[in-house]
């Protein structure tokens, strides 16, 4: 049997979630080689910081912090080379939202109908508008506003407090609201129309890894369009910046007409053959 992308992606997502639970437990046992959650991870002196958090921190304090820039560049480099893999392969809220998506298809049989293109474009505008408004408010108020509602940070903090202090904070309400909206209002609504973190990483995806359609073998059945949880339609070659490189369309294509394309950054580099 050929292994699909889902066979790698789902275990990877659960491994990240397990890591987020294991790190505070190990820290309690004084094993602190790896410290921190997704907002900021440190291992052996190397630091990775959430790029949007770092940007907000510098905007709100109106200072440039060079070590912060360095540690924030890791996720941006990931987005430049591999596209929005943070959303599809790492983000724990993405995992929850996909669970919500499964629930939604169970409740409403019609939800697999594709959204219209018009709705997608307004969705993209929504995403950028929320990101812009958040960053503007951050700059004006001097407080990292997006961090207050960021579900990734909230999940990390809940896991942290749950394992280390045995308490659950009230902000878990936000996660529940997002999940309820994902199931009952819009398919993966948070990721598609609001999430500022995804919107921020989508700004860097123009050179990255993309899904490519082979026109000769495609039979235009539209399966990819129905399966895509982010509202893209690979069948019409409309794969845009909401694509999170999850590989669902590639796995479900009956003709095998879809595949990942090499990052266009590498294409211009000539290959030296020995």
């Amino acid at each position: 049997m050929k292994l699909s992308y889902q066979h790698y992606r789902r275990p990877f997502q659960f491994a990240i979630l397990g890591l987020l639970i294991a790190i505070p437990l190990l820290n309690l046992l004084k094993v602190d080689a790896v410290q921190g959650m997704l907002c900021s991870i440190g291992a052996a002196g190397y630091e990775i910081t959430c790029a949007l958090g770092a940007l907000q921190s510098m905007l709100a304090s109106r200072e440039i912090n060079y070590s912060l820039l360095l540690s924030a560049s890791v996720f941006i480099l990931l987005a430049i080379f591999l596209g929005r893999v943070f959303c599809g392969w790492i983000c724990p809220q993405g995992l929850l939202s996909e669970g919500g998506d499964k629930l939604r298809t169970r409740f409403f049989k019609s939800s697999r109908k594709p959204d219209s293109l018009k709705r997608y474009y307004s969705g993209r505008q929504f995403l950028l508008a929320f990101l812009g408004a958040g960053l503007l408010a951050t700059f004006l108020m001097g407080i990292p506003v997006i961090c207050y509602i960021c579900p990734i940070g909230i999940i990390c903090r809940e896991l942290l407090q749950g394992t280390m202090l045995y308490k659950i904070g009230g902000e878990i309400i936000i996660i529940m609201i997002i999940l309820a909206a994902d199931v009952f209002v819009a398919r993966r609504g948070w990721c598609r129309y609001i999430c500022p973190v995804g919107a921020f990483y989508s700004l860097f995806t123009m050179f990255g890894m993309k899904v490519k359609r082979d026109q000769s073998s495609c039979v235009s059945c539209g399966t990819c369009q129905r399966i895509c949880s982010m509202g893209n339609s690979p069948v019409k070659d409309e794969i845009v910046k909401t694509c999170i490189n999850c590989g669902d369309c590639i796995d479900n294509c009956p003709e095998g007409a879809l595949s990942f394309e090499k990052p266009s950054l590498f294409k211009s580099i000539p290959v030296i053959k020995g």
Binding site: C39, S57, R157
Partner: peptide, 20 residues
């Protein structure tokens, strides 16, 4: 202004003095 609420200080505190 600068705190991104990551919880690193709380994780490293050996006395669990720091809370969120």
């Amino acid at each position: 202004a600068t705190c991104i609420k990551c919880g690193r200080c709380m994780m490293v505190c050996p006395y669990q003095s720091i809370k969120i």
